[in-house]
């Protein structure tokens, strides 16, 4: 959660909500939150668990700019 807020401070394009799942069960159910923390990105992708900064950011960015990211992965030599 701290990372999401920090991303929001760093970029004007990012909004970060911290949602208490038990107080908003409908929302938690809609996004299939079975374990926390779970980060939903632009209503489409999601990341489960707490990741280190670099990995979390990459997962978040991948969700919105898949082309740019896969290119970067290609340059890194792929899987």
């Amino acid at each position: 959660m701290r990372l999401a807020h920090r991303f929001a401070i760093e970029s004007d394009l990012i909004k970060a909500d911290c949602i208490e799942a038990t107080e908003f069960p409908d929302l938690a159910s809609r996004y299939r939150v079975y374990a926390v923390p779970k980060t939903v990105i632009n209503d489409s992708a999601s990341v489960e668990g707490a990741l280190p900064e670099e990995f979390f950011l990459d997962r978040v960015l991948k969700a919105v700019e898949p082309a740019a990211n896969s290119q970067a992965q290609g340059q890194a030599g792929g899987p």
Partner: peptide
Amino acid sequence: QPLHLQVFVT
């Protein structure tokens, strides 16, 4: 692009 992060916690 705009990014909206919703982090669910307990």
